[in-house]
Simulated assay, not measured.
Amino acid sequence: MTGDEVAIERPAAVSVGDLENGAARLVSFSGEIDLGTAPELGDVVSQETADALAVVLDLTGVTFLDSAGVRLLDTLVGAAESRGCVMKLVAPEHGVARFTLTLCAFRSDLLESTVARAVASLN
Rank of each mutant, 00 (worst) to 15 (best):
E81S: 14
G36C: 04
V16M: 09
L65T: 06
E32S: 07
L101C: 12
G61R: 05
G42Y: 02
V77N: 10
P11I: 09
L111Y: 03
E32C: 05
C85A: 13
S108I: 09
S15H: 05
G22F: 11
A23P: 04
T37L: 04
S46E: 06
G3D: 10
E40V: 11
F29V: 03
L26G: 02
R107Q: 13
Q47F: 12
V86W: 05
D51F: 11
T60S: 15
E32L: 04
D43G: 09
D58P: 03
R71L: 11
L19M: 09
A80I: 06
E32M: 03
V45N: 01
C85P: 03
T114K: 06
M1D: 10
V70K: 05
L35P: 01
A120M: 11
L103I: 11
L89H: 04
V44R: 03
A52G: 09
R98E: 05
D18E: 14
A68G: 05
L65D: 00
R117N: 14
V96Y: 06
V86M: 13
A13F: 10
R83E: 10
V62K: 00
A105V: 13
A13E: 10
A79W: 02
D4L: 12
S108K: 12
P11W: 12
G78A: 15
E40S: 12
L110D: 03
L19G: 04
T100D: 03
D66Q: 07
V45Q: 00
V70T: 06
A13Y: 07
V55L: 09
G36I: 01
K88Q: 13
T37R: 04
L19T: 02
F29A: 04
D74M: 13
S46R: 07
S82K: 14
L76F: 08
D34H: 08
L103K: 13
E32G: 02
A23L: 12
L53C: 10
R107A: 13
A116I: 00
A23C: 09
A116G: 11
D58Y: 03
A105R: 15
L53M: 10
G95F: 00
G78N: 14
A50T: 08
A12G: 03
M1T: 11
F99I: 08
A50H: 08
N21G: 15
T63I: 07
A80Y: 02
F99C: 09
V16Q: 00
L110Q: 02
L26W: 01
V90I: 06
F106R: 02
